[in-house]
């Protein structure tokens, strides 16, 4: 699996020179499988740039296909969909897997994003590509472009989101963004979901000092991410979903702190940065 980061920011895009190095686009990650398949995780504004890059491939000719894993439907995880050029090309095929009681409920939430009050697109039905929406229940496993994916529902403030455990040829990548733990720490089921992963990408929205007053918002501090990674015996931890107010220098300082906490335990820290790639 080759992972690429297209958007690593939380909540709202943060343009400006002070976010150039880590990037200001909201959540979007791609996985290229061993056989060249494409799996996309989350559809923040980074998705537009992934889409533009796909126009140099079979997606330009309407012969592309990809699976999309959606953690939840907050705006920072779906805003890129209407700006993803491959969905406007006839012949391309997408299967989206996301949270929801039924395919219809999930599809209607995505429809709501395209509501004419908000979007000139007015409806998902204006997509030219084949766009299939599949609701996933917590604990369900399914195949996405040859990868084995297991979804787990977790708390995210008053909402819920899915984390994904993704396996290929004995290697494991876990995507756990927008995760809110109770003050007592990550529950055993979460640790089991992350267990022995080669790479755990985990929400690190806040510094511990901000988390102290914002726990109800349903995000993790970098300390909580490290606690989870160590408990789950993970090899590498990817920091992700940085608060929109953090500058590059702030994130640099967070990474230094993370390494101070993690390195003595043999846990490697990989900061997610727009444009970076990582092989699992």
């Amino acid at each position: 699996m080759k992972i690429r980061f297209w958007g690593v920011r939380g909540s709202i895009p943060a343009p400006g020179p002070e976010t150039n190095r880590y990037g200001g686009n909201t959540a979007c990650v791609s996985i290229t499988t061993a056989t060249g398949g494409l799996v996309i995780i989350d559809m923040g504004t980074g998705l537009m740039h992934l889409g533009n890059s796909l126009l140099a491939s079979e997606f330009a000719r309407g012969q592309g296909r990809a699976s999309i894993l959606l953690s939840h439907t907050h705006w920072d995880h779906i805003q890129g969909l209407g700006f993803f050029p491959p969905v406007f090309i006839n012949g391309n095929q997408f299967t989206l897997w996301g949270p929801g009681g039924s395919d219809g409920v999930l599809e209607s939430i995505l429809e709501g994003q395209m509501d004419p009050n908000f979007s000139p697109l007015q409806t998902l039905k204006n997509f030219s590509a084949n766009f299939e929406v599949r609701a996933v229940r917590s604990g369900a496993s399914f195949d996405a472009e040859g990868l084995t994916v297991t979804a787990r529902e977790h708390d995210h403030g008053a909402a819920k989101a899915l984390s994904f455990r993704i396996e290929e040829h004995g290697k494991t990548f876990v995507y756990a963004s927008d995760v809110g733990y109770p003050e007592s720490g990550p529950p055993a089921e979460a640790i089991a979901h992350y267990a022995n992963a080669d790479v755990l990408l985990h929400d690190t929205t806040y510094r511990p000092e901000e988390q102290a007053t914002r726990r109800n918002r349903g995000f993790s501090s970098y300390e909580e991410a490290i606690t989870a990674a160590l408990a789950a015996n993970v090899k590498r931890l990817v920091t992700f979903h940085y608060d929109q107010d953090y500058t590059d220098d702030d994130v640099d300082a967070i990474i230094v702190k993370c390494r101070e906490l993690a390195t003595p335990h043999g846990l490697e820290i990989v900061p997610a940065r727009e444009g970076d790639e990582l092989v699992v």
Partner: peptide, 18 residues
């Protein structure tokens, strides 16, 4: 000053991506 969608990144540093 931007239309349609925010665009962070070096290519928009001077005019702005908001």
């Amino acid at each position: 000053v931007r239309g349609s969608i925010p665009v962070p990144g070096r290519a928009t540093n001077r005019y702005g991506g908001n």
